[in-house]
Every structure is written in C-alpha cells, then in structure tokens.
Design a binder for these strands. Structure first.
Lengths: 123, 123, 123, 123
DNA sequence: GTGGTCTAGACCACC
DNA sequence: GTGGTCTAGACCACA
C-alpha cells in the first residue's frame, strides 16, 4: 500500500478501513483482519494498525472482543457515512470554496475537472 | 498573527505572503519587509520567516539582492496563481470528487452549500 | 569531521553524502544514519544535518519513510553524477576556459599541471 | 551589470576591473572612473565599489591620488596576470582535477567542451 | 526510536 | 542595516 506524505499513516489506514465498511467489503458484525495480518499485508508496523483500530473503536465503528479480534460494529456503516459527511461539510467545503473564490474557478470549470477525473479513473 | 496548529507556521506565513502578492498588496519588483521586521511584526522567530522567504525564493516567487533585502519577483503573481491552481487540481479536487461519489452528493447540493457559505461569510 | 570556511557546513555535508553514494559506501535503497547519529558522529548540530538531508530529499537523492529514517533513493547514484556533471559543465568549465584564454594557457600546460597534481597526491 | 550569487559583489567588480587592465581597456597610469560614477553605471552602492578599489590598491594594482581619483598603477597588468595565474594554479586547478577524476572526464571530452564554449561565445 | 518544527541567541560577511 | 549559518535546547507527532 502506498501512502501520501501529507497525512499520517494511521489516518490513511483509517480512511481505507472506512471505505471497506462503506462499500460493504467488510460487513457489519463481521470479523476483520487481525492487527498483525493486516500490518504485514500492507507493509506497516503493527503498532500503527493497532492505533488505527483503537481509534475507530473509540468512535464506535469497530468493536474488540478480547482474545478473538476486531469486528465491524453494528450501525457502523451509517455512522461512518455521517462522520465523513460532517467532516466534509465542516472542514473540506470551506477550504474548497475559499480556493474557488481566490483562484476564480466557476462551476463549469469544476464540472469539467470532474469529467476529466472520471475518464482518467476508468482508463 | 494567529496560526492554526494543523499546518506548520512557516507554511502559513508562505500562504499569507502569496496572498499579499495575489492581492497586489505587495507589487512585483517591490521590496518586502526584512526578515527581522516581518518576524517581529507577526510575533515569530526570524529563523521561521527566513525559512519561508528562502522557500519562496526557491520557487521563483521572491528574489534576493545581497545586503539589501527580498523583493517580489517579476511574474510572481502569475506564477503564484498557477502554482496554487495546479496544486488545487492535483491534490484537492480528486479528494473532493471521491467524497462526492462516495457520499452521493450532487452538484445542486454543492451549490447549496456554496450559497450558505457565502451568506455566512457576509454576516 | 573538518570543514572549510569557504563553503557552508551543511553543503559540505551534502558533498560528503553524495560521495558516499557515488562510492557505493551507501547503497541505493539502504537506510542511512539517522539525523541525530550522523550529527554526533561528525560533531555537528542535528539541525545542520537535517538541513542537508531535506535538501537532498528535495533533489530526489534521498527518501524518507515516516518514523523510520532516510534512505538512499533508487537511481540516486546516477542522478548525483549527472547533477554534478551538469553543474561542472555549466558553472565550472566556462570559468576555466575564460582563464585559459586570458592567461594564455594551452592544453599541454594543462596536462603538465595534471601530472604534477597526480604525483603530489600520491606522495 | 549582472552578478552571480556565488561570489560577493565587490569581488566580482574586482574581477571586472582586472579584466579591463589585462585587456588594456584601462591603460597603466590612466585615471579610472570615480567611485561614484562607476557605482551608478553598474547600479551598485558606492561603498561596494570603494571596497573593491581599496582592495586593489592594497594589492598594488591601483593607486589613489587624494582629491583626484584612482589610477592604474605602473606594472599593474603584469602583476594582475601573475596574481591570477597563481590563484588559478593553486585554487582552481586542484578543484578541476578532482572533478575530472570523480566524474571520469578525460581530455578529449574537455576539448570537446572547449570547442562548444568557443562556438557558443561567438553566436 | 524517528523526523520536523520552533525558539533564542550568537556570529559572520556583505552592502 | 541586510541576509545566512550554526548552535543549543525544547517540544511534538508518528512508527
């Protein structure tokens, strides 16, 4: 797995876990990969994965059954979506709009960028 | 001057300098405040301002005349805008579009958010 | 480690690092000494080594894995040599040729000097 | 006049003055431009030119007649050439040879560079 | 343990 | 006065 340098690794792992939950690759109630397995599979220190898991546990998205492993909490998907939506609206959008104003980018340009991104994603 | 904790101080100073150039508060070819002066005025260590200035110098936005001071480079405004626009398109937008897809937000909602933000900004 | 006063210390450290890479004392992909370790070993402030490392990182000669350390980038040797060769051709040689013309020194004299230098180096 | 950042301005002016003497644009015994005139003509602080003149005076290349101005000393040309030749042999050449060895550049390549430089100079 | 940032204070060459 | 470098020491987040 490749990481951007702009965000800490454990947070990037968190994003990835959340996506797995949203996409229902990891179903609610299901057991997820152990800290050690996941760590080796993405070439990362187990401590780092541990940090991610406990963070998500504190947020009520994961649950830990001692001696067994981590599980996707019930209602995790809905909670995750809400969480990200809040974050999106409060942190991301203001930044976006500020940039649009300063760089004088209008909605048509935005939609243009969007189409490019979609096409590029497919290829 | 107040700083957010999320971004390093010297980078925030850099943003601020760039805005001064874009707004033409600091004209191209003009001498900008000396490292020491600017540092005291924004209550920061001179080394920190120095770091910002030399960084912008490397980017071709500032120039330096020995023993005299730093100056806004010719073409700095255009370069700054382009710089930011590239960064916006390459780092910010993909993130945005990914979120829009995953959170199922369409353009009408976006414009709605934008209006709210504008109104909120005025009040 | 001893330093000349004519060049800044952090640049001299940079030269030294590059030589280590060219000589393959530090292999590509290998981890290099931590900032603190290297600093104490050459009797210099950690900040100074830090400055060197980040500079070389910007030049694509070193890489950084978060919380682990600095590594010699892949292709670093070739890049370093090219880097130096360019600099040599663009900054050093014109100066040389200008002097040769003005001081009326021909190639035979040059080769003579070269032999003397080689002999002196051995003794 | 344009200056490189690698060398201090007063030294670069010194080089330029010496070239004028070697090329006999400034003849021995002749009065040279006043500090103020020269300074304005090359867009530099008079103090800087003064520093150059007094330095060359200390080296016996210029002479100062109080209230009148600076003059090219008798024997200045020969002295200048010798001065530069010494500097060339002691400081410049060792650096050159070290680079040639490390970058594995042979005499044929050098002559090649030389031809390119000559052609480029004409165009 | 690692890098990364920031401060305080000193010293230098240069203009 | 200006930039530029270096040190010493502190604190932080991350792995």
């Amino acid at each position: 797995m490749e990481f951007k340098k702009s965000l800490s690794i454990f947070e990037q792992i968190g994003m990835s876990v959340q996506e797995n939950i949203i996409n229902q690759d990891w179903q609610e109630g299901e057991r997820i990969p152990s800290v050690r397995d996941y760590a080796t599979s993405i070439q990362v220190n187990p401590n780092t994965v541990m940090r991610t898991y406990t963070l998500l546990q504190d947020q009520g998205i994961l649950e830990n059954r001692r001696g067994i492993g981590f599980f996707v909490a019930l209602g995790a998907k809905q909670k995750t979506v809400q969480h990200r939506k809040d974050q999106f609206a409060e942190e991301f959008l203001p930044e976006l709009f500020k940039n649009m104003d300063q760089l004088e980018i209008n909605w048509d340009e935005m939609k243009n960028y969007y189409q490019n991104w979609k096409n590029q994603k497919i290829s």
